[in-house]
């Protein structure tokens, strides 16, 4: 069943067309990779889907619901979670608090509960912390959870950010270059993590430059260049596609 449906998406900044008539879809529980050279418009697609950019034209629907014009927080409320290309953890806050942020959407607690410390406040705070620990366990974070997030090693910060996204209990997770800056061993761990997230029933859309990781983990690959789709299919098909090779290696147009 189709989860996310993007039709004829167009995004322009002044005269620059960042996304030029892109259509794609993601089915429930599927891993789709979005690849392409730098500046191809991959992150712009993410920003349109998550509500950070307002598309110039086109339709974006999640389970049939139109996402256009919604605030990012409202899109998140419909079950879309994301990570950022350059980590956006709350650096001064504890790692646990960072993941607690993910629970914000579903935690039931009123201001009055907080002021009076009602049983509901205690229950919800406890649940919130339990969930934060649960997702930190899930991503396999080994660092200090009580210390500030900025003190974590880089690879751990990537995991913490994914834990924060998962604590939102999303149906669709957008990962923007999750393996960037990771060493070889950490990349293998990331492949494993992405698969385990998919096994939870969460669909994943992935932007990644590491082709090894993309080929290993994706069920489908969409290749962008200049904001347009130039190829789409299973990893092994895409890898052999002449248009893709040309886009990456910069072959002559009429060679």
């Amino acid at each position: 069943m189709t989860l996310l449906d993007v039709t004829e998406l167009r995004l322009s900044f002044g005269g620059l067309l960042a996304v030029d008539g892109l259509s794609l879809s993601v089915r429930e529980g599927e891993i789709v990779s979005l690849i392409g050279p730098n500046g191809a418009g991959k992150t712009s697609v993410f920003n349109c889907v998550t509500g950070f950019y307002r598309p110039t034209a086109g339709r974006i629907t999640l389970r049939g619901r139109d996402l256009r014009g919604l605030r990012p927080s409202a899109v998140a409320g419909l079950g879309v979670a994301r990570t950022f290309q350059n980590l956006r953890l709350f650096g001064e806050l504890s790692v646990l608090d960072n993941v607690r942020a993910g629970t914000h959407l579903w935690l039931r607690q009123s201001v009055l509960d907080a002021l009076l410390h009602t049983p509901r406040y205690r229950r919800s705070e406890h649940e919130c912390t339990e969930q934060a620990h649960h997702w930190l366990d899930f991503v396999g974070l080994r660092g200090d959870r009580y210390g500030p997030a900025r003190a974590l090693p880089y690879g751990e910060q990537r995991r913490a950010e994914i834990a924060r996204a998962l604590a939102r209990r999303p149906g669709l997770l957008l990962l923007d270059e999750p393996a960037a800056g990771l060493n070889h061993g950490e990349k293998a761990g990331m492949v494993d993590l992405i698969r385990r997230i998919r096994d939870l029933g969460v669909a994943i859309m992935l932007i990644e430059h590491d082709m090894g990781l993309v080929m290993e983990v994706s069920e489908r690959v969409v290749v962008l260049n200049f904001g347009r789709e130039i190829a789409e299919g299973r990893p092994e098909e895409v890898r052999r596609d002449p248009a893709v090779i040309e886009a990456y290696l910069g072959g002559e147009p009429d060679a």
């Binding site: 927080s73 979670a81 950022f84 956006r88 709350f90 650096g91 001064e92 993910g102 914000h104």
Partner: peptide
């Protein structure tokens, strides 16, 4: 605090 630390990231986690 999320807003204070990073408004965009807060918004992405569902904080209006």
């Amino acid at each position: 605090r999320f807003v204070r630390e990073d408004e965009d990231a807060a918004e992405a986690t569902g904080v209006n």
